[in-house]
Simulated assay, not measured.
Amino acid sequence: MSEEIPVPPAPDSRTIWRYLNMPQFLSIIEREKLWFSRTTEYDDPYEISIPSGDISRYVDLMREEPDFDSETIEQMVGAVEDLMPSGIESFSNYIYANSWHINENESDAMWKIYSHTHEGLAIQTTVGNLREALNSEYDMKIGEVQYIDWNQASGFVMPIQFAFLKRPDFAHERELRACYVNREELEKVDGAVADYDHETPIGEYIGVSVPKLIDKIYTSPKSPNWFHEMIKMILDTYDIDAEVRKSGVYKKSHSA
């Protein structure tokens, strides 16, 4: 039985989006797999980092400890301040994530950031569909990323929990993550603490049931008609029963 580690909850009914280019989409439906990136591959240098607020919380608790003299407590405090951040961050080589955008509606920003050409598309689904579609032996954690002031204490203690924390600078992403610890690689390390220098794969493909995953497909707001029709043909070829819609982000509606 896997250890139950709580992460920020995500209701199964929550609508999520994955904005893609054409090669990424074809990879998903041809392989029937989703790409999970090692968290060191993300742009944010604070991935799998412990907020300074959490370190301060631990330091304060130690200084209130009545069973040790002041010299011993200060030695313990120094060890926490020096070793805890590096200890947590060393796990970034072993934690893998697949990211989605949480929104009831399309996002102009996400189209511009993640679909750089007119031949882009987005998968619309729900958290429940993603949870059901994933086929993995890993202990998969699915949750909403929390955007906090780094001086604030999160209360988290396990490395994978810190995969669900980011600074407010990234709040526009409204990110949902599916994450796991690559325990096969972790078991190769001699000792209980992760070795940051141990070479691990930059990413892994994890099996997924594509028909269960996809609810709707939206084609880019600037995509030509032939691209829209081609996506329909591709879905028919792979026997995927999903509605294909043209994005209405730049279309003026009389009911608006």
Rank of each mutant, 00 (worst) to 15 (best):
W35A: 07
D195G: 04
I231T: 02
K212N: 14
D44N: 08
V59Y: 10
S86T: 14
V157T: 14
T237C: 06
S115N: 13
M110G: 08
Y238N: 08
M233N: 06
H118D: 13
K232Y: 03
A163D: 02
K141H: 07
I48K: 02
H228K: 07
E41V: 07
K188P: 01
F91Q: 00
T15A: 03
M233A: 12
I29F: 01
L20T: 02
A194I: 03
H172M: 10
W100Q: 01
E187L: 09
S253H: 11
E173K: 06
L34I: 06
E243A: 13
N151C: 04
P9A: 03
A242H: 05
G191H: 09
K112S: 09
N135D: 15
W17F: 13
T126P: 04
V193N: 11
D44V: 10
M158T: 02
A178C: 06
E74Q: 13
V77R: 12
F91I: 00
F68S: 08
K246D: 03
T15H: 05
T126A: 09
T219S: 09
H254R: 11
E185N: 15
D69E: 15
L34N: 09
D169S: 11
E199Q: 14
D82G: 01
Y46P: 00
G143I: 01
I142V: 12
G78F: 13
H228G: 03
I95F: 11
L235E: 07
A133C: 10
I206R: 11
D197A: 13
E4H: 08
I231A: 01
H101L: 00
R183T: 13
